[in-house]
């Protein structure tokens, strides 16, 4: 869902760049409390893994492919603030080094994938975690459901940008229907990858998983 230059007009792209920059600034402050000597390298690894898996486009429907977005995965592993930063770093490197995603559209893409998908995904994760049985596997399932819905959420962000400032004049409802439908399909792949990736980290180093630590243990850490 890397937006090329030209789809959305420059004034709208500029406005979203300002919003994206504000979101990144807030995330730098917010990530401070969740990042320490042990979790900072995990955050780096999460960004690295997401870059790698974003190269792996999988077929979804006739002539269409999708790849991991990684927003819900990152939010569950390292927390939403650090996740916003991780996806943003990946998007900037992809645009600068690999010509993937337009430079003038970077604010649009960061808004959709680093902010909307991360925070919407994290909200869904918290909701599902709350009602699911208190088991380790519930964390992976909650992360997978969050992943499934985070992709159409990012797609909805694009539709909003299209509605505000597209250079083309096709019907917004047609763009909405097509974007949400296609990205729900991609969301299924997103859910599977997220389920197994979160499961793998929980199996080897559950103590590092942000979304697994409960309120009590966080309070204990603060008290110490």
């Amino acid at each position: 869902m890397h937006i090329p230059d030209g789809f959305i007009g420059l004034p709208t792209s500029g406005a979203f760049a300002v919003v994206a920059a504000a979101g990144v600034a807030i995330s730098i402050r917010g990530a401070k409390s969740s990042l320490d000597e042990k979790t900072a390298p995990l955050a780096g690894l999460t960004a690295t893994f997401i870059f790698a898996v974003q190269m792996l486009n999988f077929p979804v429907a006739a002539g269409t492919s999708g790849h991991l977005l990684g927003a819900a995965l990152a939010a569950v592993l390292i927390g939403p603030y650090a996740a916003t930063l991780a996806i943003t770093i990946v998007l900037i490197l992809q645009a600068l080094l690999f010509a993937d995603g337009g430079l003038s559209a970077l604010g649009l893409s960061i808004f959709n994938m680093s902010i909307v998908a991360v925070w919407f995904g994290y909200g869904v994760f918290l909701l599902v975690k709350k009602i699911a049985p208190k088991k380790k596997v519930s964390i992976s399932i909650a992360a997978a459901i969050a992943a499934l819905l985070s992709v159409p959420a990012a797609a909805a962000g694009f539709v909003l940008q299209y509605a505000i400032g597209a250079n083309a004049t096709f019907s917004i409802s047609a763009v909405f229907t097509a974007m949400i439908g296609t990205h729900l399909l991609i969301g299924i792949g997103e859910a599977l990858i997220t389920f197994f990736a979160v499961g793998a980290v929980l199996a080897s180093r559950s103590d590092l998983v942000y979304g697994y630590k409960n309120q009590v243990s966080q309070l204990e850490i603060r008290a110490n």
């Binding site: 401070k32 390298p41 780096g44 690894l45 690295t48 870059f51 650090a82 930063l85 770093i89 490197l93």
Partner: peptide, 15 residues
């Protein structure tokens, strides 16, 4: 590149 830059930045902003 992603590994070096992101790990570096996360270390800079950590507690």
């Amino acid at each position: 590149a992603t590994g070096a830059i992101s790990t570096g930045l996360f270390f800079l902003i950590r507690r």
